[in-house]
């Protein structure tokens, strides 16, 4: 029963989120400029061409009518056709998904273990130089803007050393009808720097969480028991401390993963990684409204779903939650 209430609450909030996002997105883009100037060739088009194209795109209608029309279409699953690419907008978003997924996954695959290990170490050595330097570095890594981090990675990894390319996606391989680059060496090579740029702040975040969790757990009686029983520190750390601090870590991994899927905008732009976030930025700048709306909708839905998944994990991982259901 409680589950249904929670689910309904979630659903209604997701719905509200979608509605608000769609209105803001719609009005925002409408107020910014006329997309028709990106559709016709402004250097050769006559005012008549522009006028006719405006009518053909339905942009001559009042904004509220355009919005109602849009909502009507969305209900039937149609987000419209991209002004720029002349393709169904939602299909376009989906075609960018593999690039987004693989970048976010690899970044998280790096960040989760590294961050956890660093956090456990710092927590165990609470107050030592190691702990303090991990803590301070994490403040730094968390606070510098991602574009700065990306720039430094390009400077160090690409320009000074020439080890990695400074941008682009590299070669891809077709699998399940989609193009993936993590399956080719060249693709992985291109993935390294952007993945690192996304991973570093997450390493810092996870490390801090793991550290504070470890400190808390280490003070608990059962850890003392374990130590008194003569268990090795390693065993205590990985068998007992880790499971006990895993709930917030899994939560943050889930949330951050959702964030990365959608909003690694800056990193993706700098590394020219053709993914959903970059599509959003490009479409906003090109005023490609159908694509902006489709992207925002996709992102909102992905967010809600991921949050729900995190809750589910919560129930599975945390013994207290499991007991109460």
């Amino acid at each position: 029963m409680a589950l249904i209430t929670v689910a309904m609450g979630r659903l209604s909030q997701a719905f509200l989120l979608l509605l608000v996002m769609s209105i803001i997105g719609f009005i925002g883009i409408h107020s910014v400029g006329n997309p028709v100037f990106n559709v016709v060739n402004i250097e050769t088009a006559t005012p008549e061409d522009i006028r006719r194209a405006t009518i053909a795109l339905g942009l001559d209608q009042p904004v509220w009518r355009q919005y109602l029309l849009f909502i009507g279409n969305v209900v039937t699953g149609n987000f419209g056709t991209s002004y720029i690419y002349h393709l169904p907008a939602f299909g376009l978003v989906m075609s960018k998904l593999p690039a987004t997924l693989e970048l976010a996954s690899i970044a998280m695959l790096v960040a989760a273990p590294v961050g956890t290990v660093l956090g456990l170490l710092a927590g165990r050595r609470n107050g030592t130089l190691l702990d303090r330097s991990i803590l301070k570095t994490s403040v730094f890594a968390l606070s510098v803007p991602s574009f700065w981090l990306s720039m430094m990675l390009i400077l160090l990894g690409a320009i000074l050393t020439g080890w990695f390319p400074s941008g682009g996606r590299g070669s891809t391989v077709s699998l399940l009808g989609q193009e993936w680059s993590f399956l080719t060496w060249n693709g992985l090579w291109h993935l390294t720097l952007p993945a690192l740029a996304l991973a570093i702040p997450n390493i810092a975040l996870i490390a801090r969480l793991a550290r504070s969790g470890t400190i808390e757990v280490e003070q608990l009686d059962f850890t003392r028991f374990c130590r008194a029983k003569g268990l090795s520190p390693r065993r205590i750390l990985f068998r007992h401390t880790l499971p006990n601090i895993s709930v917030p870590i899994v939560t943050i991994i889930g949330l951050q993963f959702g964030g990365m899927l959608a909003f690694a905008v800056v990193v993706e732009s700098i590394f020219a990684w053709p993914s959903v976030g970059k599509l959003l930025i490009d479409s906003i700048q090109l005023l490609d409204r159908p694509v902006v709306m489709a992207t925002l909708t996709f992102i909102s839905v992905a967010f809600v779903v991921l949050n729900a998944l995190v809750d589910l994990f919560y129930a599975v991982l945390d013994p207290r939650v499991r007991l109460s259901t």
Partner: peptide
């Protein structure tokens, strides 16, 4: 707060 701050700021400044 369910949206990342950067996106809110982005949409705001674009508008």
């Amino acid at each position: 707060l369910s949206l990342p701050t950067i996106l809110v700021a982005l949409i705001a400044i674009v508008t």
